[in-house]
Simulated assay, not measured.
Amino acid sequence: MDRSTAAQSTGPVGSDRVLAVLKELARHPDGVGLEELTRVIASPKPTVHRALQSLRRAGLAQQDTRGHYLLGDEFLRMAFAHHEARPDHVRVRPALEALAERFGETVHYAVLDGHEVVYRAKVDPPTGAVRLTSTVGGRNPAHATGVGKLLLAHELRTTEDVEAWIGDAPLERRTPRTRHTAAELHEEFEAVRERGYALDDQENEPGVNCLALPVYAVSATAPSGAVSVSALTYRTPLSALIEAYDEIRSLLGPLGAPLR
């Protein structure tokens, strides 16, 4: 058995192959050829072609004038209709509940709105823990929060970007730990992009820290919001949240990862 045959023998079969082809099409908004699909799916060309034909009959795939395949209009219609019927905070809530139960701490989902973050969802721990005073619909300065710094890091890539975002009015220093200058924030944003999460080390409120991760509930490439596990420092120090990063990321599931 040669390498090609060996690779194809380990590929998906039946309905799994159709789903694998559908997922691969989603990674190619400009279309993808049959040869590349066959290679990536690791299945024989005739079977990949049959999967494509099944998807085309259902309107879930289509072929352009170059012979490349891409997601069909029917698939997009269903996806957008489903998306409109389920707001992002509704989709994120099961993950928030799992995180609150696992860590016994308050979990937020927030979005960026100019210089502030708006909390779209909040789940308090089920029992036992002290609950934070944050509310759904409440706001905080973006630069002083983990969720805000996480989202800003994806938008403000240079010092000039940060300076333009700050503008003429100085940023509020909520605590002595709050980073509030362009140089401080640019350095922080670079660190956020490198490690994949943001931290709030008592920068918004004394005695409270948090770890924030991106959520891809709307776009496959840019975070629509961020989730934070917020904790009282005496009970859950920041080092404990950092050590739990992989577990937090796992509990977020697919919402925590961009489409690659």
Rank of each mutant, 00 (worst) to 15 (best):
T127A: 15
A20D: 12
R179T: 10
D30Y: 09
A217C: 04
A26S: 13
T236C: 07
P206S: 14
A79F: 10
Y197V: 01
E101P: 00
A58M: 15
T221Y: 14
E188Q: 10
D246M: 05
L25H: 08
R249C: 02
R77N: 10
P44I: 04
G148K: 04
L152C: 03
H68T: 10
L238K: 04
K45Q: 15
R235I: 12
G72H: 03
E187N: 06
G207V: 07
E205H: 14
T221C: 05
S250N: 01
F103W: 06
S43W: 01
A6G: 05
L211D: 02
E74C: 04
A61W: 09
E84P: 00
P87T: 01
D88Q: 11
L52T: 11
A198D: 03
L132V: 09
I248L: 04
M78W: 07
T236F: 00
K149V: 02
Y245H: 08
A7N: 11
R195E: 03
A240P: 02
E247F: 03
K45E: 11
G33Y: 09
R66K: 15
I242S: 04
L37H: 01
T145Y: 00
H83A: 11
L71S: 02
V136T: 14
P170T: 03
T159A: 12
T135Y: 09
F75T: 00
L252E: 01
H115K: 15
R157D: 11
V48K: 01
L55N: 12
T38L: 04
A257D: 15
E187R: 14
H68L: 12
R131T: 15
V218C: 13
A100G: 13
L99M: 10
A169Q: 15
R174G: 04
V147K: 06
A100R: 06
D200P: 04
V32D: 01
R157I: 08
T127P: 00
A191S: 13
V92W: 05
T5Y: 03
P206M: 09
R66D: 12
P237T: 08
E97K: 09
L70H: 02
T233I: 09
E188H: 12
W165D: 03
T135F: 11
V147P: 11
C210N: 01
A182K: 06
R177S: 14
G114D: 08
A85P: 04
Y234V: 13
R177Y: 15
D168I: 01
R120F: 02
E203R: 05
H108I: 12
S230K: 00
V130E: 09
R120K: 15
L152F: 05
T38S: 10
I242L: 08
E194V: 09
H68S: 12
A144Q: 02
D64V: 10
T145V: 01
G256A: 09
P29Q: 06
A26C: 14
E243N: 08
G31D: 00
A6H: 13
A169G: 06
E243K: 14
E194S: 13
V90R: 05
G114V: 04
A244S: 11
M78L: 12
M1Q: 08
L252A: 03
Q202G: 00
V107A: 03
